[in-house]
């Protein structure tokens, strides 16, 4: 393999082309004057204008954003607790149950997660009257349940690499366990928490299936609205939306990269 690096590199190039061709085509056609993807009818930004006037899409985006922020915040709190318990507490009762329930959502098909959550909410409503109906709350709960698993995994892998004598040293110097967590552990795993928050945010913003199961009337998320419009065929407005999303994500990653590089430079 090493003798012919060109083979590996051409395969690498092919992989990236495969990953990016569809995204590039979306962006290009979002500026197409014509409604048809087939024909290039000249440059236009009219689809962006009409996207900004599409009350339904904008409303759904607002719903999705609120759910995503709530979800990410809750998921970081719960996922951090779960990850800490799994790494730092040795063996305790319920550990294997926790480990299983943290791992399973990572590979569980969405349809099962969605169906399971919905059935729970229906049964709970019957039994205790809460949650009354379904909407943003139920979607958020279902999202937290699976995205906290991702956070827990990220926190776990960071904690495993963290020298436990750092926490012991803090305790040795007189800090109590909770204080140790807030003064030593938390600052050291902060980058992992930020990554977990962003991941949970994205997972929630991206989810169609679970939201469809657990949503009720009046709480349509962005993917749900996009899905129903996509089923009807290609729509240039969706292209515009996709381009904006790609732009935002790229911007976010570039900013994160610059910040990280600055930090690295400062540390030198």
């Amino acid at each position: 393999m090493m003798r012919r690096p060109s083979l590996v590199f051409s395969l690498l190039a092919f992989g990236y082309a495969f990953l990016y061709a569809p995204i590039v085509s979306l962006i290009v056609y979002s500026f197409n004057e014509s409604r048809l993807v087939t024909v290039w009818a000249g440059f236009s930004t009219k689809w962006y204008t009409s996207l900004l006037q599409n009350e339904q899409l904008l409303g759904a985006a607002w719903v999705s954003l609120r759910i995503a922020v709530m979800n990410a915040t809750l998921a970081v709190v719960l996922g951090t607790l779960a990850g800490t318990a799994l790494v730092r507490f040795g063996r305790f009762r319920g550990r294997s149950a926790l480990a299983l329930m943290v791992g399973a959502p990572l590979v569980m098909p969405d349809v099962i997660l969605g169906l399971a959550s919905l059935l729970l909410f229906v049964a709970m409503e019957q039994l205790i009257g809460w949650p009354a109906g379904r909407g943003m709350t139920t979607i958020t709960i279902a999202h937290v349940t699976f995205s906290m698993a991702y956070v827990a995994v990220i926190v776990q892998s960071r904690l495993v690499r963290l020298d436990p004598s750092l926490e012991e040293a803090a305790m040795d110097l007189g800090a109590r366990p909770w204080k140790v967590f807030f003064v030593i552990t938390l600052p050291l795993i902060a980058p992992a928490l930020a990554a977990g928050w962003l991941l949970a945010f994205t997972l929630s913003l991206d989810d169609l299936v679970i939201a469809s199961f657990t949503s009720g009337p009046g709480a349509s998320t962005l993917p749900m609205v996009v899905y129903s419009s996509v089923r009807l065929g290609v729509s240039p407005e969706i292209n515009a939306l996709a381009s904006i999303m790609v732009g935002l994500v790229t911007l976010g990653i570039v900013i994160a990269g610059v910040i990280m590089q600055r930090r690295a430079a400062d540390a030198r």
Binding site: P22, S25, L26, V37, P223, V226, V234, V249
Partner: peptide, 25 residues
């Protein structure tokens, strides 16, 4: 990062992109 980046954009929209590429016209 370039491998991860598509993952951060909407799954639905990435699949949707293929409709425009694959369909009859």
């Amino acid at each position: 990062m370039l491998v991860i980046l598509p993952f951060w954009t909407s799954f639905l929209i990435r699949i949707y992109a293929w409709i425009g590429i694959l369909k009859g016209n």
